[in-house]
Design a protein around this nucleic acid. Structure first.
Ligand SMILES: [Mn+2]
Ligand SMILES: [Mn+2]
Ligand SMILES: [Zn+2]
Ligand SMILES: [Zn+2]
Lengths: 172, 172
DNA sequence: GCCAGTTATGCAAACCTTTTGCAATTCAGG
DNA sequence: CCTGAATTGCAAAAGGTTTGCATAACTGGC
């Protein structure tokens, strides 16, 4: 049953369901294992996330879904569940609203971002500091199961340009 | 970075790293420069923060002040202002509530924490990954004024113990 | 010291994001 | 199909944070 999406609204985005049935099958599998149900909203959310390369807020997710397809409360509940089964990863850009990104098959989704403090542009960062640092910190303080959250912030090239222009105009 | 005390152990409140009149004078200086007023609440907040080695939430700050001395709204406004003049640093432990820590004289306050996900114990971490990583990321994407937020999470020794006991009792 | 002008505070209401209770609806498995 | 369990929508409640406004507290200059 590789029906990509069974309830996609007509004016849905021109998205093509050319994904390797990965998520859906992974979803159904994990869901069944926990006696959870495969519902329209859940599939739609996963479908939407699959098309987005960066973390999305719950509001953005709702806005990206066909009008009126899913209540915000349901999205909140879904994201909790998807996070629990590790199909999505939660990120915090420090603005007080959670963001979620799809975890690709096999991976654990751990990675970081570089965020423009002016326009909120996001760059995916796959590098990380040496594991030794974390290990040393964990050992030194006797902590176990240590992990970390790390995000970079700065001003993107475009916003640097904008700032420059504004400066010139003002100085003129 | 903060040399006051490298490793704060749990309940290390009673510790005193006397940073003399530093804050107050620094405060008055910076305040005056911006035509702001030196008020009771602001001094009290700074005084309180000076005695705490870890970030505090606004509620904790209010609770730590003499009963009824300061409205919560005032604390929020004060923290914004103190942050602005770089007398305090804001931290985000990912639980949706901001925390503030006093910035010691001369320093910029940039550092990290190791937080127990069970009991919320906090360890101050003065190390950081090599600057080269951040520089490389900034350069690669053309970003400027790049900085980062980093926090570590894990289970502290005591909570590991608790978990072990619980396991034994259950397995009995 | 005292005044005037400005900045800060208290209080209550507004805002936002996130969570929850509950009745109605949808799923899954038989 | 049927039926019980899981899920959803809706509205209300929670938290944390911000704001408008009248009142109170500072400060620099007399
Ligand atoms: Mn990402
Ligand atoms: Mn700290
Ligand atoms: Zn930008
Ligand atoms: Zn702990």
């Amino acid at each position: 049953m590789s029906k990509c999406s069974q309830r996609h609204h007509k004016h849905s985005h021109s998205h093509s369901c050319n994904h390797p049935q990965s998520d859906l099958s992974e979803l159904t599998a994990k869901l069944r294992k926990n006696a959870r149900k495969i519902t329209g909203p859940r599939q739609a959310i996963l479908d939407l996330l699959r098309q987005h390369p960066h973390p999305m807020t719950n509001k953005e997710i709702q806005a990206g879904l066909p009008e009126g397809m899913c209540d915000l409360a349901t999205i909140y509940r879904s994201m909790h569940m998807l996070e629990e089964m590790e199909l999505v990863k939660r990120f915090d850009f420090g603005d007080g609203t959670a963001r979620f990104e799809l975890v690709h098959e096999g991976e654990d989704g751990h990675h970081h971002h570089l965020i423009c403090t002016v326009c909120a542009d996001v760059v995916e960062i796959d590098e990380c500091f040496q594991q030794e640092l974390e290990d040393a910190i964990a050992k030194r303080h006797g902590y176990q199961a240590v992990t970390h959250k790390l995000e970079f912030f700065g001003v993107c090239p475009e916003c640097q340009e904008d700032a420059k222009k504004a400066r010139e105009k003002k100085g003129k």
